[in-house]
């Protein structure tokens, strides 16, 4: 394994961004090793796109620093940039070119270009490369943006809402490509999306942003194990809600109660059952439910 592979691909230290007096990001600390597929989640306005802009050097931080492949994001050298692929939320295609022309121009800027991959994907995704980009639909433009980001086989692929305009068939094919990339231990993927189902399939790590701060950074499986919903069943009606540590959300209906908790340890179940004289059933949650609970 080379020296580069051992170091984290992304390091973020005390990162903050303030725009016109409003703090968009505050005190974000991250380290992402190579080979990970990280999902970036957050509500609208949580700071996801700003974080990606700062990571890639499009914007300059107001506080702290971030680096990619060991280089300051604000001053990425050519060699580092050549290893990055980026699909922006709103495409940056030149409307007056045809898809083939835009691909040609971008290909000319890279030392290596996997023409076979691009041609195959363009064919599979039924992308009309001979048409002017300005006449393409939103989904077709998005497919082209993805092709442009994949063509040079980047070691770090950053995707900002890449599949929001794709139809289900195209999204399935796109996810297949993403899963293929995810299987390559030398390649790292940062994937921001609201389609949590896609993330569950591809990501092994998660960053959750909440009001500009990092609310969670860890393994997806660990999050799913630690946030669960407890179904409590008592012999008589609950007078008050059981006060559970780390409870995110609770509701009571007669002698039944539901409590969503984080930092859950399976060993807690027996102790709590004995303490409240209830039966406890632990329900694992999907990522969407976890996200909703964390933002409740």
């Amino acid at each position: 394994m080379s020296d580069v592979d051992v170091k984290p691909v992304i390091v973020v230290e005390g990162l903050g961004k303030t725009i016109k007096g409003r703090a968009i990001l505050q005190d974000v600390e991250l380290a992402l090793p190579a080979g990970q597929v990280v999902g970036l989640l957050g509500k609208n306005g949580a700071g996801k796109s700003t974080l990606l802009d700062l990571l890639l050097g499009f914007a300059l931080p107001s506080a702290g620093r971030c680096s990619i492949f060991g280089h300051d994001s604000a001053r990425l050298p050519e060699a580092a940039k050549a290893q990055i692929g980026f699909v922006p939320q709103q495409d940056e295609l030149v409307g007056m070119l045809t898809g083939a022309q835009q691909l040609g121009f971008v290909a000319s800027l890279h030392r290596q270009w996997d023409r076979a991959l691009v041609d195959r994907l363009a064919r599979e995704w039924e992308l009309p490369l001979d048409r002017r980009i300005s006449t393409l639909s939103g989904g077709e433009r998005q497919k082209l943006s993805v092709l442009l980001a994949l063509g040079h086989q980047p070691r770090l692929l950053v995707l900002d809402e890449p599949a929001s305009a794709l139809d289900p068939v195209a999204r399935r094919r796109f996810m297949q490509e993403i899963l293929e990339i995810a299987g390559d231990p030398t390649r790292t993927l940062v994937y921001s999306t609201h389609l949590v189902g896609d993330l569950e399939r591809a990501a092994n790590r998660l960053w959750i942003l909440r009001e500009g701060r990092l609310a969670f950074d860890g393994e997806l499986d660990a999050l799913k194990e630690s946030v669960v919903r407890l179904h409590l069943s008592a012999s008589r009606d609950f007078a008050t809600l059981p006060a559970l540590p780390n409870a995110l959300h609770a509701s009571v209906q007669g002698r039944l109660a539901q409590v969503t908790v984080q930092a859950w340890e399976p060993a807690q179940a027996a102790a709590l059952a004995a303490q409240w004289d209830v039966e406890i059933e632990v329900e694992p949650l999907g990522l969407e439910d976890i996200f909703l609970a964390l933002h409740a």
Binding site: D53, F58, Q90, E92, G95, S134
Partner: peptide, 9 residues
């Protein structure tokens, strides 16, 4: 800080 959402023509 390059603005987002600017579609080039």
């Amino acid at each position: 800080d390059w603005p987002r959402g600017v579609t080039p023509r």
